[in-house]
Design a protein around this nucleic acid. Structure first.
Length: 574
RNA sequence: CGGGGCGUAGCGCAGCUUGGUAGCGCGCACGGUUCGGGACCGUGAGGCCCCGGGUUCAAAUCCCGGCGCCCCGACCA
């Protein structure tokens, strides 16, 4: 491809809307343009990258025994009502009506559709297991699209679904997909780490996410420094603390804490450690008020709370509700002496607090010397793991290592769905004895466009993108210093033809630009290898080869250049 | 949805406070000089100043109402 013909409009300045590297660079280097919030046009360079990622995914999916199909994006309401998700998915679903006022949505995911297809066509245990996948645009009307392709409203996803006779078959296949995912991300050149995950709105029980580690990532993960435990913080387990020293209980006592609301203020005022404070957080769980107690230095993990309660909607109570229930303004809620009787839940760590401090349910008042066993257990408190882990917590798996926190971009997730969808939609089969059984399902997603963005987050410098070889839009870029110079031009054309003959994807910058402009664009676009051809090196019958990532330069004889490049690429791919 | 910011040429921005003929840089077109890390000089094209209403002799500027975009918090590939 000749740069003079390539549709890749580069920008000298960063569009004001972009914040993170991948977003800025995709715009600046001419890979994409925005149409609306979270909706983008992929320009030719981006398409090449996406197609390479997709090719790797297809290879690994096919190898894992999955078959590609393509389902409709537009899906009728009735299908989604079978699983109840027409309502559950809520605002996030793009909805539309046809001319007959029939309602449809743009598929945010395809469990309903694939399950209904399989339900219609598969009858016998002999046809199971089966795994199907597709790569297509997904639509989610995100509350806040941001960071370019990271959280888009229209995005490319590979979604796969598997159907099994039983849990064992699913377990086996889940393992296989998990490994396929690890290979996909390794092959595209991403450093991605599998972590235990909450299964969220998709449903099911066991789930892993693949996280591309990057400071710009929106997800936080906890991992053990000693063993291979790693989990999304939403999911990461916190061990109950060791039992306390059993210091002598003091009588509960109300004290004045004028205008002290926050943990820090109260602790400093009373001269106690924040760990002695117990926060009483009031929530509405599907509309019903509940109280969650966590230690002053901990935060509530709302996912754990929602899972414990089986609630679909968990929100912090509003100030009016808090006032009604506690009889006090926000900041003084406590477990003892509430105006209304509501269910109580305490994090394990709370139950080990000694001489605790809690809100007094009265303005400017706290209670000290709280003994959880003496004062909370009689109230019917239920203890559970309800907090977010913090750095330095003991590893819940090996119990020896300490947990560290890191940020990641979720590029893939695998779920064991169980029978949630097959039951709702009636995906059943006949077993050997002719008995009707419900299929057991798994589902497996990769954010393809997000993977491209994540690859940039992990592979860029101050000058531009440094593509991993496997997904670079082109492998080699030839830059003539002076396109007007006959000799340089001939050398470029010769190398260009030679590389194409070897099946190498090559770009030739045949534009009548100054060298500086071409170098800047080369760095921006991020082609792994750049060959500079100019009179200076040509005089020694050589060309200069620069590796984009790391910037290593080498002078190579002009006749050896094609071979050198081919070798380098072959080695880089293994 | 709550909080903060912003909509002026393709991109980055100034002008708005204190209403009075719409500007700068980059990019783009043409001519010339240049030519190994975003050259220089000259000429030129390009604007429903987000939209609608109001105030006023006069609105990019003031007022009201929308819409859109970005950032921070609750969602997910």
């Amino acid at each position: 491809m000749r740069m003079s013909e390539l549709f890749a409009p580069t920008l000298r300045e960063v569009p004001a809307e972009a914040e993170i590297a991948s977003h800025k660079l995709l715009l600046r280097a001419g890979y994409m343009r925005k149409l609306a919030g979270g909706i983008y046009t992929y320009l030719p360079l981006a398409i090449r990258v996406l197609q390479k990622i997709e090719a790797i995914i297809r290879e690994e999916m096919d190898r894992a025994g999955a078959q590609e199909l393509l389902m409709p994006i537009v899906q009728p309401r009735e299908l989604w009502e079978k699983t109840g998700r027409w309502d559950v998915y809520g605002e996030e679903m793009f909805r539309l009506q046809d001319r007959h006022k029939r309602e449809f949505c743009l598929g945010p995911t395809h469990e309903e559709l694939i399950t209904s297809i399989v339900a219609q066509e598969i009858r016998s245990y002999r046809q199971l297991p089966v795994a199907l996948y597709q790569i297509q645009n997904k639509y989610r009307d995100e509350i806040r699209p941001r960071f370019g392709l990271m959280r888009a409203r229209e995005f490319i996803m590979k979604d796969a679904y598997s159907f099994h006779r039983n849990e064992e078959s699913l377990d086996e296949y889940y393992r296989r997909m998990y490994e396929a995912y690890a290979r996909v991300f390794a092959r595209v050149g991403l450093s991605a780490r599998p972590v235990e995950a909450d299964s969220g709105a998709i449903g099911g029980n066991i789930s892993h996410e693949f996280m591309a580690l990057a400071p710009s990532g929106e997800a936080e993960i906890a991992y053990c420094t000693n063993c291979d435990y790693a989990a999304n913080v939403e999911r990461a387990e916190a061990l109950p603390p060791p039992a306390g020293g059993g210091s002598e209980a003091q009588p509960l006592e109300a004290v004045d804490t004028p205008d002290k609301h926050t943990v820090e203020e109260v602790a400093a005022f009373l001269g106690v450690e924040p760990q002695q404070l117990i926060k009483t957080m009031l929530y509405l769980a599907d509309g019903e008020p509940i109280a969650v107690l966590v230690r002053g230095d901990h935060e509530v993990n709302e996912v754990k709370v929602a899972n414990l309660l089986g609630a679909t909607n968990l929100t912090l109570a509003d100030p009016d509700t808090i006032r009604r229930i506690t009889g006090a303004p926000v900041g003084f809620a406590g477990p003892i002496g509430l105006k209304e009787e509501i269910p109580f839940y305490a994090d394990h760590a709370v139950m080990a607090v000694e001489r605790g401090v809690v809100g007094g349910n009265k303005k400017d008042t706290h209670l000290i010397n709280l003994d959880p066993k003496r004062d909370l257990e009689p109230l019917g408190v239920k203890a559970a793991d309800l907090r977010l882990v913090v750095e330095g917590d003991s590893c819940p798996r090996c119990r020896e290592g300490k947990l560290q926190l890191a940020r990641g971009i979720e590029v893939g997730q695998v779920f064991k769905l169980g029978t949630k969808y097959s039951e709702a939609i009636g995906a059943v089969y006949l077993d050997e004895e002719g008995k009707t059984q419900t299929m057991v399902m798994g589902c497996y997603g990769i954010g393809v466009s997000r993977t491209m963005a994540a690859a940039i987050e992990q592979n860029h410098d101050e000058f531009g993108i440094c593509w991993p070889v496997a997904i670079a839009p082109y492998q080699v870029l030839i830059v003539p210093i002076n396109w007007q110079d006959e000799e340089s031009r001939a050398a470029c054309e010769k190398l260009y033809a030679e590389l194409e003959a070897r099946g190498i994807e090559v770009l030739l910058d045949d534009r009548n630009e100054r060298a500086g402009v071409k170098f800047k664009d080369a760095d921006l676009i991020g082609i792994p290898l750049r060959v500079t051809i100019g009179p200076k090196t040509l005089a020694q019958n050589a060309v200069e080869i620069k590796v984009r990532k790391g910037g290593k330069m080498e002078l190579v004889g002009i006749d050896e250049a094609a071979g050198w490049l081919e070798n380098w690429l072959r080695e880089a791919q293994t």
